[in-house]
Each structure stands twice: as C-alpha cells, then as structure tokens.
Amino acid sequence: MAYKIAVASGKGGTGKTSVSVNLYHYLAQQVSEKVQLVDCDVEEPDDILFFKEAQKEHEENFYQLIPEIDTGKCTFCSKCAEYCEFNAIVILPPAGFAEVNKRLCHSCGACLVACPEEAIHEKKEAIGTISCFRTAIGNGIVEGKLKIGSAMQSMLVKAAKKSISQQNDLVIYDAPPGTSCTVVQTVSDVDYVILVTEPTLFGLHDLKIMVDLVQELKKPYGVVINKTGFGCTLIHNYLATENIELLGEIPFLKEYASNYANGELFNHIPHAIENSFQAFITNIDRKILQYEGDNYFKW
C-alpha cells in the first residue's frame, strides 16, 4: 500500500499548491519515482500549470446518477419525497407533477428503493472530468475538474482518488481550501496530513479549525509555515503551546513569488527556498520511513 499524504490548509492562499507540487518534485527526485500527485481541488485545479512538459494521457467524464420520475407510472404517493434526505423531490399530486431537482440530489438511490411502482429510473449526468497527466519525473498527476454548476465536489474527489495507479509508493493529495466536506473527503483515507499555514491572524484562525478537524479524524499531522520572515510569531507560539510538530518554514521571497506567478517553480529556485524545502523533505522522509518500519510486514 502506498503511503498517502494530504496537503491541506483551512485558509486559502497559504501555499497548498506550492507545497504539494514541490513535495511531488522532491519526493520523486529523492525518495521514490513511484509517486503520484492528485489535485483534489476540483473546483479550481491548478497543479498541472507548474508542469509545462506534462502530457495528458487520459481523460474521462465522471457521471452522477440522477433519478427521473416517469409521471406515466407515478401514482404520486410521495414515498420517494419522504425518503429523500436532501429534499430534492417535489410531488404535487393534483397537478400530476413529480420532479427531482438535480442540484439537490446526492444520488443516494433511496427514492428507487422507496418507489412501489418502479416509476423511477436513474440517468447519467456528467459532473466533471478526471484526467491523468504524465510528467518528466514521478508517476504523474491525476486531476479532478468539476463541471461549472455542479455541486458534487466530494463525489469527484472520491472518483479522482480511485483513478490513481496501483504502482505507487507515495501519493500526495492537494486538498481544496477550507474545512468542508471536500476537505474531509480528501483527508479521510490518508496516512499523514501536512497543514500549510501563513504567519497571519487569519492563517492562525483557520489553522486552529483545521487542527480540530484532523484531530477529530485521528490523523497524524504536522505544520508547514509558508511566507515567513515578517517577524510574526503567532503560529510558532500556538504550535509550541499545543505541542504540534513544525515540519518546515518557507521564507517569503519576492523573487520566488514571481517565479510562481510565471508557473516556474523549478527554475532558478532561490537558495533559501531550496534549503527550506530540503529540510522539510527530510522531515517528511522520516515520516515515510517510520510508516514503512511500522508496516514492514504489510509493505
């Protein structure tokens, strides 16, 4: 089984993508070529932008099954509407009206079980795409991209995770921002969570929420502070009081930020950045070795 790491943050813009992409790059170079990166930020996937050489190998639509009610067979008993946890079904007997609202439906299938007349059938509805890209090093990138208008993020994250190669030693999930269902879905099956934060009040506030989440999910985790160097010790103090492991610190450098904006994370990496990533990778490698040690027989 591959060792799975999620990169999450709570607050947006702290550097999940930078950390994920760099982690992929360095792990592939230094730890194992058999590493895959999964972009779980399905509403705005962007990991691929940093791999200009990447070739799309495969793309497929992912479908959600939406029930449709055949009003010819329907007796308007409203059983399906009673079963529906998401209030997606509207039945108006006098009007002969029975409809499923696509935006509310979660495809749980309860209405099909409820219907005594077999008047409900499921129809495929595309909610997004899953793409696989080959990169110069590593096992490549899997990207989930949600169709505009669909609200089935978690479903697509799950599908993206299922499309990963079986030949991996390591898998990195780049989580969406926030602490909502999609993030829970991303983090739920990983072996380790890297929380990326920034030294601001806002960064600290959202980090705390994220820490609550990973503790509740009982996942081992550590923190990376991105954009350091402004003298703010809020995060350091918090980590010290709560006894949370600091995995690394990445200094803020204008030069590096402009590289990022140009999509060039791996060219002309400033020394300070390179060194901080090396130290961070060493810490992560230690986690991987620990895991391998603990799971020696399973591995």
Partner: peptide
C-alpha cells in the same frame, strides 16, 4: 431543513 428549504 439542511437542504431544499426553498424548494419545499
């Protein structure tokens, strides 16, 4: 309701 208050 968690979902669909407007619809219902």
């Amino acid at each position: 309701l968690n979902n669909g208050a407007g619809t219902k």
